[in-house]
Amino acid sequence: MINFQYARATDLADALRQIAAEPGAKFIAGGTNLIDLMKEDVERPPRLIDISRLPLREVEQTRHGGLLIGALVPNSDLAYHPLIERHYPLLASAILAGASAQLRNMASTGGNLLQRTRCYYFYDTATPCNKRTPGSGCAARYGVNRIHAILGTSDACIATHPSDMCVALAALDAQVHVAGPSGGRTLTFADLHRLPGTTPERDTNLAADEIITAVELPERGFAANYSYLKIRDRLSYAFALVSVAAALELEHGTIKEARLALGGVAHKPWRNVSAEAAMRGEPANRATFARAADAILRDAKGFAHNAFKIELARRAILRALSQAAAGTPQSQSVKKIR
């Protein structure tokens, strides 16, 4: 960990002033990913601006019937928030599928969105990695890549985004409120994260001097028919090999609206709106779900150790959509898969 300066931001304007003043400076809130990476010498910010005490901890109802979640609401508070539990149980479930109780107590909503990949090579400064050191190469591509991406990869990078929460937010069509030197803007969730392309060092479309202030959920919460199904190498406290956020609105067994997002398979939470559109108006059965799975995985491509993820994802999609349709979402504590 390099020597860095530390200052606490007094308010949002102060935070933006401070970040603009020093190139490479970073915000710190929960710290659970940034400090980890600083200890590995992967992140080397000369200055940390502590935003953890800014007043961004509220969960409020919006005029449009949705919710506005302050960027500093801790993950555990969000998962257990009565409005989230009642109206957005998919989000609650996804949050509880991730990390540990301690980390969820620390991690912030905004920070969760900005967490970086768990690719072994990204973490190990002794190895090549285009995301960490642009131009150094991607060792994962021909190396140990069991945990890597099958969708949206590039020659430069096959890393995955590690968040569970983001998979649910993607499925729920959340929006991300951002403040910057020239005012605020709102991004759709799909526009927040990037595919690696030739610039894998950039995870998101945020500018270096912007800050996430809130995440907004639309009214539609899919509280009746949803499931977050996470498949991993042990039964808890592990990153997803594949995870599925499934949400349906049903009318007499017919799908009125469908959402399907995947985690652990790409550089960002993976959605495919045409796969979802194809489910609308169809009966909520395995044949429909299988077509959706085939559609979302059409361009999937495996590497030496992770090709299994394609078939695993297909099956997990079928299962999660079936759970959602049946109104029997996956429990995050009872480990038997429903």
Binding site: Y120, G143, D233, R234, L235
Partner: peptide, 14 residues
């Protein structure tokens, strides 16, 4: 490559 105890998996309570 997985020289840490997040990616070298040992059983957890669950």
């Amino acid at each position: 490559m997985n020289s840490n105890i997040a990616e070298y998996h040992v059983p957890v309570n669950a």
